[in-house]
Structures are given as C-alpha cells and as structure tokens.
Computed example of a mutant assay.
Amino acid sequence: MTNPWRGEVALVIDGERQCMKLTLGALAELEEALAEPSLVSLVERFESGQFTSRDVLALLGAGLRGGGAQVTQTALAQADIEGGPVAAARAAAELLARAFALDT
C-alpha cells in the first residue's frame, strides 16, 4: 500500500503493483540521467505538457529505485505498464508533485 503523505505513488508494471518514491538519491539520479542543471525545468516541462517519453521513463525508473525496486531502465522500457503511456505519464507527474509538495 502506498502512502501519498510520504510521496509514494503506485503503478502496476508487468502485472505487479509497485510503490515508487523520489528519494533524495533518486532525485540526484534523475538530474544526472536527464542532464538537467535543476529539477525546476523538468517540473516546468510537466506542468506545461512539454515532457518527453524519456522524461517519463527516467522519472519512473528513479521512483521505482527510490521505492526499493531493482529495475534497469532497459527493463522498464520493455515492461507492460497497466494503463499504457497515459498512466505512466500521470504517475510520473504525480511523483514530481508529491516529491515537492509542502506539508500543510
């Protein structure tokens, strides 16, 4: 079970429910993978709908590894994601939103 207050997002991959989370290490991995000087530009791309499939895969991979899964980007790129590309993009956007949400 995922806990949104901890920044966790669920996604079903190859028929198995996975818990994703963007930890500090996952965020650093994401910056390096996307060669971004900061994550602000990535957040802006998602907010404006200008993200790429590469962005989605990088976010999901980092989130999966942040959640404890041992998955490579190659395996993720070949995986069956329940709900297809739209569900994958929604989950990636939700990961970003939860990672930077302020507690109220």
Rank of each mutant, 00 (worst) to 15 (best):
T23G: 13
E44F: 15
A99H: 01
P85D: 15
V86Y: 11
G7E: 05
Q70Y: 13
Q73I: 14
A58E: 06
L60A: 06
L39A: 04
E94G: 07
M20L: 15
G15C: 01
G7Q: 08
D14E: 05
R54A: 14
L95P: 02
S53C: 04
E31Q: 10
G63T: 02
Q70D: 14
V12M: 05
V43N: 04
L59G: 01
L34D: 00
A87V: 01
A88I: 07
D80G: 06
A75P: 00
A75L: 13
N3T: 01
R90Q: 13
L24Y: 02
M1Y: 12
V9I: 03
M20S: 03
A92T: 04
I81T: 09
G84Q: 10
E8M: 00
G66I: 04
Q18C: 15
A88M: 11
A28W: 10
E36D: 03
E82W: 08
F46K: 00
E47P: 00
L76F: 07
M20D: 01
L76V: 07
G15F: 05
L57S: 09
T74R: 12
V86G: 06
T74S: 12
L39S: 04
G25E: 05
Q18W: 11
C19D: 07
R6W: 15
G25N: 06
R17C: 04
G68K: 02
L11T: 08
L96F: 11
R65K: 10
T74L: 12
V40S: 11
G83S: 04
V71W: 14
R90W: 14
R17S: 14
G68L: 01
S41W: 13
E29Q: 11
L11I: 12
A101P: 05
G67H: 05
G84P: 03
L34H: 06
G61V: 10
A97C: 06
A75R: 08
A33L: 08
V56L: 03
G67Q: 07
R98S: 11
L60T: 07
K21M: 11
G7D: 06
R6D: 14
G63I: 02
S41A: 10
A10W: 09
A88T: 08
L39M: 07
T2N: 12
A89N: 10
E31M: 05
G67R: 09
A77M: 15
E44V: 13
V71K: 05
V43E: 15
L27A: 11
G68I: 03
A69D: 07
A62E: 03
A10F: 05
A62C: 12
E16I: 09
Q73W: 10
A33R: 07
A99L: 04
F100C: 05
Q78E: 10
R54Y: 13
L42M: 04
P4D: 11
L24K: 02
G49I: 06
L59E: 02
A79T: 04
V71T: 12
L59K: 00
W5C: 06
G25W: 02
R54T: 14
A93E: 14
V86N: 08
P4H: 09
G84C: 11
V86S: 15
L64A: 05
E8H: 00
A69M: 11
A35N: 10
L96K: 04
L102A: 12
I13M: 08
A35Y: 02
G66C: 00
L24D: 00
E82A: 15
